[in-house]
């Protein structure tokens, strides 16, 4: 759905940053995608393949780091991973509304020359 427009702005940012560093090519593009970011990694990869042609990233490798949804349980004073997006603490079974990780949608690094 919206992965195309997201990929497009990612490529725009990457191009700007690469140009600012006087690079002529992007060899690797790394992004971080949280489980709750609303972005589907496969769709993002497809959008990259479709949009990279003619850009500085035409020959680039695309790496996606997926970040799990991690909640904080105040009761146990500990983090737990909300696997299958169940926000119940596996120790005390209380629901946690305190999400610490999982919303990330970031361009983390570029390899350029």
């Amino acid at each position: 759905m919206h992965e195309f427009s997201i990929m497009q702005s990612t490529l725009e940012t990457a191009t700007q940053q690469a140009r600012a560093a006087e690079a002529t090519q992007i060899h690797r593009l790394k992004v971080r995608v949280g489980k709750l970011s609303g972005v589907v990694p496969e769709a993002l990869r497809f959008a990259f393949t479709a949009l990279k042609t003619g850009s500085l990233a035409d020959g680039a490798e695309f790496e996606i780091e997926e970040v799990p949804a991690v909640c904080w349980c105040a009761n146990c004073a500990a983090e737990f991973e909300a696997t299958r997006l169940n926000y119940e603490c596996p120790r005390c079974h209380q629901l946690s509304g305190d999400l610490r990780r999982g919303l990330e949608l970031e361009l983390t690094a570029l390899e350029i020359s």
Binding site: Q17, T24, V31, G54, L105, T108, A109, L110, I112
Partner: peptide, 26 residues
């Protein structure tokens, strides 16, 4: 669209890593 880079280089460029950690929906 971006004008791109349409000239050839016959010299090599060293690869460089740019750490950005910037929000895509910034």
């Amino acid at each position: 669209r971006d004008p791109g880079h349409d000239h050839h280089h016959d010299h090599s460029h060293p690869h460089q890593i740019l750490d950005l950690n910037t929000g895509i929906l910034g």
